Amino acid sequence: MSENTPQNPYEPGAGGPTPPSGPAQPPAYGSGQPPAYGGGQPPAYGESGRPPAYGGPGDTYGTQAGAPFSVGEALGYGWRRFTGNWLFWVLFVLLTFVVGAIFNAPSFGDLQEINEAAMRGDISASTAAGASAGGSLLQLIGSLVTSVLSALGVNAALREVSGEKATWGSLFKVNSFGMVVLAALLLLAASFVGVLLCGVGLIAVAIFSVFTYHNVVDRNLNAWEAFTTSFRQVGQNFGAVFLLELAVLGINIVGTLVCLIGLLVTIPLTTIAVAYAFRRLTGGPVAA
């Protein structure tokens, strides 16, 4: 090598700095992959991230909770499900009519007996009071029985919304029949208190407690939780629910005017429509 040739400073023995060692590329981030999320994969929604099963094991959330609905949509849905299972629903409404008539018939008989005794002039205060008390007790029992039947009707309506035709076999299949009875007693007591508050409280109970039975049957809540939860659900969606309740009231008034025969159609239609609204608001399963 010529003396004028410059010497490579990285050659061994040249006295220059030691050449850099290691790979030419920067080290891979996490060996080529980002750090594993939670040990490999994010937790599945059906494992650690899933909320409690809706209404019992095996049920799924069919709609987003709080999904909006219209009155026409709910009533149209109720009509379709009713016409697909009309015989069961007509017979069920007839059953409620018969039960109501059975418990109210003695009170009408007592009134007739009191009137006849008064015309004869041999009626006493104790006789009138006893007849009135007996009729009131039977009416109270009748109100409780019809309220329980209403809850069973809600159970049937929720089955219709799930895509299942309600039957006499499934009518009484509820998680806790005793809780249904307690909810009926609670609603009767709340209505009585509402009457004492100049009727204003009764209107409030009628509007805000509409989903009480739904919460007991569909979400397995106890009577008090179902009652207070219904108040909250209606309050959070007051506009849509109130309009639906007004429509339900108007339709059933029309059914009453048609010699009560119209109620054989309007009661099932509106019961299913309210169950549909409940499922839409709570994210429960809704069949097409």
Rank of each mutant, 00 (worst) to 15 (best):
residue 143 S to V: 11
residue 144 L to P: 02
residue 144 L to K: 05
residue 150 S to D: 14
residue 153 G to Y: 05
residue 153 G to P: 01
residue 154 V to H: 11
residue 155 N to Y: 04
residue 155 N to F: 07
residue 157 A to Q: 09
residue 157 A to P: 14
residue 158 L to S: 08
residue 158 L to Q: 10
residue 158 L to F: 03
residue 160 E to Q: 10
residue 163 G to E: 09
residue 163 G to Y: 00
residue 165 K to E: 15
residue 169 G to H: 05
residue 170 S to H: 08
residue 170 S to E: 10
residue 171 L to M: 09
residue 173 K to H: 02
residue 175 N to L: 02
residue 176 S to F: 13
residue 176 S to C: 11
residue 178 G to I: 09
residue 179 M to G: 06
residue 180 V to A: 09
residue 181 V to G: 06
residue 183 A to E: 03
residue 184 A to K: 05
residue 184 A to D: 13
residue 184 A to V: 08
residue 185 L to R: 06
residue 188 L to H: 00
residue 188 L to W: 00
residue 189 A to E: 01
residue 190 A to D: 05
residue 193 V to E: 01
residue 195 V to N: 03
residue 195 V to D: 06
residue 195 V to Q: 08
residue 196 L to C: 11
residue 199 G to R: 04
residue 202 L to D: 12
residue 202 L to H: 05
residue 203 I to C: 03
residue 206 A to G: 10
residue 206 A to W: 11
residue 208 F to E: 07
residue 209 S to P: 14
residue 210 V to W: 08
residue 211 F to K: 06
residue 213 Y to N: 07
residue 213 Y to M: 13
residue 213 Y to H: 10
residue 214 H to R: 09
residue 218 D to W: 03
residue 220 N to T: 12
residue 220 N to S: 14
residue 220 N to R: 15
residue 221 L to D: 12
residue 222 N to S: 13
residue 223 A to R: 05
residue 223 A to F: 07
residue 225 E to H: 03
residue 226 A to N: 06
residue 226 A to G: 10
residue 226 A to K: 13
residue 227 F to Y: 08
residue 228 T to H: 03
residue 228 T to P: 13
residue 229 T to L: 04
residue 230 S to M: 06
residue 232 R to S: 08
residue 233 Q to K: 03
residue 234 V to T: 09
residue 234 V to Y: 00
residue 235 G to R: 00
residue 236 Q to G: 12
residue 239 G to W: 05
residue 239 G to Y: 04
residue 241 V to I: 09
residue 241 V to K: 12
residue 244 L to T: 11
residue 245 E to H: 05
residue 245 E to R: 04
residue 246 L to R: 07
residue 248 V to D: 02
residue 249 L to W: 10
residue 249 L to P: 14
residue 249 L to G: 15
residue 251 I to N: 02
residue 251 I to G: 05
residue 254 V to E: 01
residue 255 G to S: 10
residue 255 G to F: 09
residue 259 C to K: 03
residue 260 L to F: 01
residue 261 I to W: 00
residue 261 I to V: 15
residue 262 G to P: 13
residue 264 L to R: 00
residue 270 T to E: 11
residue 272 I to L: 01
residue 272 I to M: 02
residue 273 A to N: 13
residue 275 A to V: 00
residue 277 A to S: 15
residue 277 A to Q: 10
residue 277 A to W: 10
